[in-house]
Simulated scan of single mutants.
Amino acid sequence: MARAALDSGIFETHNDRLARASLERAPQGMGEVDPASGGFLFAPEYERKFLQSLYEAAPILSRCMVIESSDGRPHKFPRIDETSRADNLRFGGVVSTWVDEGTQPTAGKPKVEMIELTPRKVLAIAWATNELVMDSDDLLSPFLERSFTGELAYRIEDAIVKGTGAGQPLGIVHSPATITVAKEVGQAGGTIVKENLDKLFDAIAYPLRSRAVWLIGEGVERQLNKINATNPGTFYYARPSETSADCYATLYGRPVIPTENCPALGSLGDIILADLSLYTLLRNTGIAVSGHAGFTSDQSVFRAVCRVDGAPLLGAPVTATDGTQRSAFATLAAR
């Protein structure tokens, strides 16, 4: 690619990469710094630009708790093993009592468990003919940047919503910490009713509601508009034009984020209420982009690699003092 591609802030020319690889770090076997194997790391400033673009394109990802991993190895994190807010069980066993002077207090201690996250590789690949690379480098570089960041953002957010935890992050839908609200008796398939929304909102612990956001799939917005029409003055869904928010509607005062990562209307997870700050992502910043020739077909291959893992920072719902189970995550059962 021509020098203009480098000036765009993302891709270097093939000769630039060869020179930099040979001058700065000699290859030792096959790897991402070996020109023969087609891999060249981002310069640090390009990597930061790529990561910034990735997060700007990802309204779900950008709200999660992100922890950097410099080595890409598994990391363990402590979390409070709390399943009840009853006396002597809060924070897993911290005890507090009113005592008179000189009275020995009752002892207690928090209960902590460990979770382990291992950065998983997500890979995006694009092919281009060498004629296209040579003839349209000024347009191709920003196009590839947008394409790669958009695709990686989609793939990571899809895992945050509904990842299985097997070779990919554990998503909200499949987490044991998520409360699944049952459909109403006699509720028609492929619908959402006000009682569903009331119960989803009630399932989120009080202190977490101020940070919670709604994630909705395609078709859900139409259901919310129908509920608005049949519950005038008693329902709290406000479309973007009716609020001070710059781009999102609000439901019970919390932002509503439409996303294609939620499944179809009527499926488990088509509407989610979540405090995403309690979803933890472990990220390895070694993002690489490379371009090398597919010799026999006269094509170039561009590759972007990102390594992440994630899981909710809660192990299970918590029984509140009124006996109700609450969590940071709630979704609606299939209908």
Rank of each mutant, 00 (worst) to 15 (best):
R3I: 13
D7E: 12
S8L: 06
F11Y: 14
D16K: 08
L18K: 14
A19T: 09
A19P: 00
A26G: 04
M30A: 13
E32L: 13
E32T: 10
D34L: 06
S37G: 02
F42C: 09
E45H: 10
Y46E: 12
Y46V: 08
A57N: 12
P59R: 07
P59F: 05
V66W: 00
V66S: 02
D71L: 02
G72S: 08
R73V: 04
F77A: 09
D81P: 03
D87F: 12
N88V: 04
L89R: 14
G93H: 03
V94C: 07
V95F: 01
V99Q: 12
D100C: 03
T103E: 15
K109H: 10
K111S: 15
K111R: 15
K121E: 15
A124H: 09
T129I: 00
M134L: 11
M134F: 10
M134W: 08
D135Q: 14
L139T: 07
L139H: 07
L140E: 02
S141D: 07
S141L: 01
P142F: 00
P142G: 05
L144F: 03
E145V: 01
G150M: 07
A153E: 04
I156S: 06
V161E: 00
V161C: 00
V161R: 00
K162A: 12
G163N: 08
T164P: 08
G165F: 07
A166E: 12
G167S: 10
P169K: 08
V173K: 06
V173T: 10
H174T: 10
T180H: 11
A182Y: 02
A182C: 00
G189L: 09
T191W: 05
E195R: 12
K199S: 13
F201I: 09
L215F: 02
G219T: 01
G219E: 02
Q223T: 03
L224Q: 03
I227R: 02
T230L: 14
T230V: 15
N231Y: 10
T234D: 08
Y237V: 04
A238C: 02
T243M: 09
C247I: 12
C247L: 14
L251A: 06
V256H: 03
V256C: 04
T259N: 07
C262D: 07
S267W: 03
L268F: 09
D275A: 09
L278V: 03
R283L: 11
R283A: 08
N284S: 11
G286M: 11
V289Q: 12
F295M: 13
C306H: 01
G310N: 06
L313W: 13
D322I: 05
T324M: 07
F329C: 06
T331I: 04
A333I: 04
R335I: 11
